[in-house]
């Protein structure tokens, strides 16, 4: 069997780990693993196609999203947040899991309607990309905690990159570089925002923000 589809299946599983994570530490670990898997998919594609862009892209993902961003997040967490604290959903965890399953099904159905122009990756990978995108967006909307909402956004971004890999594997490296660096900037900005929020309301729980303060 192709290693890409196996890696992609793991990629999807790790995204579910991100959905059920109760602790920030677990969520960051899941994001890191997800980024490594995405880089692995790009590198496995390089082995098949010998496109140098793919190798560079894979290495870029691994170094930035697999090493730099998780390290940044961990350091931020150590300074500002209690990483061991449990966080919850606006819905229950089992409901979140089932909604996640429904969303991934929706992703697969959506992918089956899109004709895949490249035949480098099997169609299942496109479905997995869309599913992860939806799962990430779902996490962003349904989580209470700001840090985990950011985690959802980052996961959605990873799904988007997988979709990009399927639809346009020969994208110019410059664009990819800009994309990935943007995420790094976004993480920095968002972590400053979260630190600021914690100073103001003593928590990163966004449901606290609905209270009026005089």
């Amino acid at each position: 069997m192709l290693p890409e589809i196996t890696l992609a299946a793991l990629f999807l599983l790790v995204s579910f780990q991100l959905i059920v994570a109760r602790r920030l530490r677990t969520a960051v670990g899941a994001y890191q693993l997800q980024s490594w898997l995405l880089g692995g998919i790009a590198i496995a594609l390089f082995v098949h196609t010998h496109l140098t862009e793919l190798l560079l892209f894979g290495l870029l993902i691994v170094s930035l999203k697999g090493v730099a961003i998780p390290t940044l997040l961990r350091r931020r967490m150590r300074v500002a947040l209690s990483a061991g604290r449990e966080s919850s959903y606006h819905v229950g965890f089992p409901t979140a899991l089932l909604l996640g399953a429904a969303l991934s099904l929706a992703g697969f159905i959506a992918a089956s309607r899109i004709p895949s122009p490249s035949h480098l990756l099997p169609g299942a990978d496109l479905g997995i990309g869309i599913a992860v995108l939806l799962l990430g967006l779902f996490t962003t909307t349904a989580r209470r905690d700001g840090v985990l909402q950011m985690g959802g956004l980052l996961a959605a971004e990873n799904g988007l990159l997988l979709i990009g890999l399927v639809l346009a594997p020969r994208l110019s490296l410059l664009i990819e570089f800009a994309l990935v660096l943007d995420v790094l900037i976004a993480v920095v900005v968002m972590s400053f925002l979260l630190a600021r929020m914690r100073e103001e309301v003593f928590s990163t729980d966004t449901s606290e923000l609905t209270r009026l303060r005089g």
């Binding site: 589809i5 299946a9 999807l12 599983l13 579910f16 059920v20 965890f93 089992p94 399953a101 299942a124």
Partner: peptide, 24 residues
């Protein structure tokens, strides 16, 4: 009371297995 999460997780695994098998 966390048993539903464990078994919900197993359900999601089986479900994804089913979906992937139809795609593969």
């Amino acid at each position: 009371m966390r048993v539903p999460e464990y078994l919900g997780g197993s359900f999601v695994l089986a479900f994804l297995g089913l979906v992937l098998s139809t795609l593969g």
